[in-house]
Design a binder for these strands. Structure first.
Lengths: 340, 340
DNA sequence: CTGCCGCACGAAAACGTTTTCGACAAGATG
DNA sequence: CATCTTGTCGAAAACGTTTTCGTGCGGCAG
């Protein structure tokens, strides 16, 4: 297919071939008003015949619009940033824009460095992907272009943050369990320092209260690991042997809980139902049994962030918090409650 | 810290403050020869006082060097591309370069699109991250700048491919088992269509042969899942009850194998030792017991790819295949063989 | 003193766009 | 016919660099 171009085809070539001036060619390609339909047609044909690709650098130099956004993340190695990135990339691709990715790895120095780097590259806007742990210091005043925060909320309420709706997601899970007749529901989750853990617990409690139920014991806060899930499940069953469902703060914990339940001879979902969180396929789908879980819709979240960024680029920048709803994925770890 | 700059500081400003011409300022900052030490000093001080950041777009427009490389991957969602990306980013950061990331998701159309996009952005070079499945069609002829293939090998032997040394990694694992006195070693791994699976089997067999041993049964090729690990472990133990070690094609399989072994009442590592592959922390470290496994050193692989790309940018481009050695990570799933 | 060489520096061109503004023609209006 | 408007186009400036080439100056040899 494409052959190696020794020197790339420039707007001048297109203009020559179409028999117009460079300025006219530029206007035609950017669909500006002051060009006759016939001329525009000629230019477009010439451009496509030469398979002209505008040099983004020159464009950015003049118009300031590089059609690039910077995506600054803090933990690429984690499993949250990637889906967000993919969703953002999709949404950007539709608009012929691209994404410049940097991973600050939680280091403030590195973060400032990348902000400078991205600004030197004249990105049109920023998307800052945080972790859901807590509010993160606003970087907006360091950045002279529009900024949208994704997944992690900015401290500055004047910024726009697009977040996962942890409370709503937990409600989905809880309603699913309650509607299946589960009555003694325990909660095993990650560190209480994590806002996501607290919000999910809140959502769960709200649904239980509405159903006239209450949580089986206090939420067991621990860490986001399978190991903690295994350990906490023993604690929970010892304290509350009657539990018929466990809502877990993430899928790893859920896998650990399932492990212990099997060790203790409880059948899943017949004796005890389990719901996880995150829909992390490797754990959720490959668990014994496969886990019912809450999908965060992170790709959608990335796309939403991009759309808000576009709006900001067009001049109307919003503020506050947007919650991106999750989605319940039902697998085999839940089912109707046992008859008693 | 940084305040919002209404208009960015340009080389002109630096030159003015240093009392020199723009050209001299440029030369001083780029450490070219024809500038007096005192002058250079003045320019550098002025630049740092104004915290000058050169506009990369203009630089790229002229010199063709944008100090950016394009990284084209096929499966960002998988777990291999990210560490490679991180390693590359590290290596690039040391040289004040940055990376433009695109995920073609295995789609040829999308791939061509991204290649055009990246070329329009004047990247200095490409790193193409494939999967380890098999050779991938060379894209070099579509790309007028240096290209290095990482993780997945190019079909064209004239290209440079930096790959994980699967055979060597398997040797590390096998030598570890053999040196601990294991004599009946089984192998459960992914699809035989995967080159990584075949190479690892080859490495294992080689070590066994050198030790005068042979594999316990044929390698069990299946899929890269925990589920397959659980299933295959039953098959293996039924056919060869005497096995005292299992080398697994990846950590998920190993976790499944561990699961089944526990179900069957075998102690790990006392009765049967297990070695995984990939050192995927979530599975390997959180397994019961934590898995001894082979780390692919993917970050190092990314860095190696970048260094070769630098070499190519400097004019001496290499060809062929570079194998990046792995590293054995010893955890609790292996230990001395049982006395019999 | 003259001529020459090398060093440090600056003027200006170049890069490929976008944008502004002026020119010109054709048609409409008086 | 004169004037104005409208629509289409091109010349030229602008963007912030890098690079090329010319200039002036000091020192040194003849």
């Amino acid at each position: 297919m494409g052959r190696l171009r020794s020197r790339s085809v420039t707007l001048r070539d297109v203009a020559d071939r179409a028999g117009v001036s460079v300025s006219t060619a530029s206007k035609a390609l950017n669909s500006r008003a002051e060009v006759a339909p016939a001329t525009r047609e000629r230019v477009l044909r010439a451009a496509s015949e030469l398979s002209f690709q505008p040099n983004v650098l020159a464009r950015g130099l003049i118009s300031g619009r590089t059609r690039t956004v910077g995506l600054l993340t803090d933990e690429l190695a984690g499993r949250f940033a990637i889906p967000i990135l993919l969703g953002a990339e999709n949404a950007l691709g539709n608009e012929q824009m691209s994404v410049l990715l940097c991973d600050a790895r939680g280091d403030a120095i590195r973060r400032q460095h990348y902000i400078r780097t991205l600004l030197a590259r004249q990105v049109d806007g920023f998307i800052i992907v945080g972790d859901s742990n807590d509010l993160r210091p606003s970087l907006t005043r360091d950045i002279p272009v529009p900024v949208v925060y994704a997944y992690g909320e900015s401290t500055d309420p004047g910024d726009l943050s697009v977040l996962a709706d942890d409370e709503g997601g937990a409600r989905l899970a809880a309603e699913h369990l309650v509607s299946h007749g589960r009555r003694w529901i325990g909660h095993i989750t990650g560190p209480e320092t994590y806002r996501a853990a607290r919000d999910r617990a809140t959502g769960l409690r709200a649904v239980l209260a509405e159903a006239g139920l209450s949580l089986a014991g206090d939420p067991l806060y621990g860490e986001w690991s399978q190991r903690w899930g295994r350990h906490a499940a023993r604690l929970l069953l010892a304290a509350r042997p009657e539990v018929d469902a466990v809502f877990c703060g993430n899928d790893q914990i859920a896998a650990g809980v399932a492990d212990t339940l099997r060790d203790l001879g409880r059948r899943i979902p017949d004796d005890v139902a389990i719901v996880g969180y995150d829909n992390w396929e490797f754990f959720a789908a490959d668990c014994r049994p496969p886990l019912t879980t809450v999908d965060l819709n992170l790709e959608q979240l990335g796309a939403t962030a991009v759309n808000h960024l576009f709006a900001a680029l067009d001049g109307d920048r919003a503020a506050g918090v947007v919650r991106q709803p999750g989605r319940l994925v039902v697998r085999e770890s839940t089912g109707p409650a046992p008859h008693r």
